[in-house]
Design a protein around this nucleic acid. Structure first.
Lengths: 200, 200
DNA sequence: ATACTAGTTGACCGTTCGGTAAAATGCAAG
DNA sequence: CTTGCATTTTACCGAACGGTCAACTAGTAT
């Protein structure tokens, strides 16, 4: 059972950086198997298809973030609007460290996969959509807390949260197009200027 | 010469909707050739590689936009900030009409390609970066005109322009993840709330 | 008439793709 | 000792991948 778990996680561990740094279509099962030291037949014992693997990879990234930077950023002890700053900073430092190691800015794997596969695979699209929905909720809760604390003026927290998430993804996209995480540093803080007014 | 031009443009015409609706890696030369009614050898007479084809496709999309919606939106006759509204509206209506025909929201091909290939091909990345740079310039010029006309308070036009471009791409990304162009309609107008203050 | 060239054809290259199936292995419970 | 199950190995599938090549066609310029 332990060995089995190990094989499965070796596969995921081999797949993660590859899907992140290249693309879904550009990474083959064979390459992953070789890197993980696993035979292809063994791969298909644990994953019914390539799609199932990438879903597991998505889950791992999501968990990693949820228990890492996201947990730190959305710490209730922080003043609400500072949590948003923290999250943007975390994205910046993360991308920067990746570039230092890898030589390239890899961006957000959820955004990457969304634009690549969401017209071709509704199951993957739904999976990624769920990730974004959770992210949006964090922003929304934070905004509502900030409004309650009169840190910011009342607004449409749902749409503003979605706008902020969109902005973050867009900033990472532009940064990736320049292969330069400093773009996140320069543009990131403007996220707090975004506002959708409350419905009348 | 006319016939030759025709073959070349039939190839591009076949490739355009495919790259837009799927991905770079997922569209094969063979499929494009079949759809265009062209032999593969003939394809490689006009395009040295698949990359050269997609660059031609990028140019076509860029020209199409530049002479279409972008020209309309950035009409000097319009008040500057209304041009930005116009562009967001254009993106919305375009994606909406694509979805009506195609059943799916395809998003922005420049954003799509950027996230897919920019870690793997610096030449393509540079090509896409140039597209984004031009787009940013349009925003920047518009913002500066708006400041000059005292329509808006002075700001850092360069960074605000980049932020707006990022936001637009991010909104389209989220819309694609939901396969719903209405996301652009809801979130788009908030683009004008983005601000990066002028350097002290 | 001839030579050159742009364009086209169709067969072909080796490689990789995602996925399958059957046999072998190891281990644990009865 | 044996049955059963999870895991692994190995060989294989047909299809598609990007790209190449030599032969052929047709029109043009000399």
């Amino acid at each position: 059972m332990n060995i089995a778990t190990d094989t499965r996680s070796r596969i995921i561990a081999a797949a993660k950086p590859r899907f992140h740094s290249r693309s879904y279509a550009n990474v083959g099962i064979q390459e992953i198997c070789e890197s993980a030291g696993v035979q292809k037949g063994s791969f298909y014992h644990f994953f019914p298809s390539k799609r199932d693997l990438v879903m597991a990879v998505i889950d791992e990234f999501a968990d990693e973030w949820a228990h890492g930077f996201v947990a730190e950023a959305f710490d209730p002890a922080l003043p609400p609007m500072e949590r948003i700053d923290y999250l943007v900073d975390a994205a910046y430092f993360w991308q920067k460290s990746i570039k230092q190691v890898h030589g390239r800015m890899l961006g957000c794997i959820f955004g990457n996969l969304t634009l690549e596969v969401s017209t071709q695979d509704d199951i993957l699209r739904a999976k990624l959509l769920a990730i974004f929905s959770r992210a949006k909720s964090r922003f929304k809760d934070t905004l509502e807390e900030a409004v309650a604390a009169t840190t910011i003026a009342p607004l449409n927290s749902d749409l503003t949260a979605e706008a902020m998430l969109a902005y973050l993804e867009g900033v990472i996209l532009l940064a990736k197009s320049q292969n330069d995480p400093e773009v996140i540093y320069r543009l990131g803080p403007a996220i707090k200027t975004l506002r959708v007014e409350a419905a009348a």
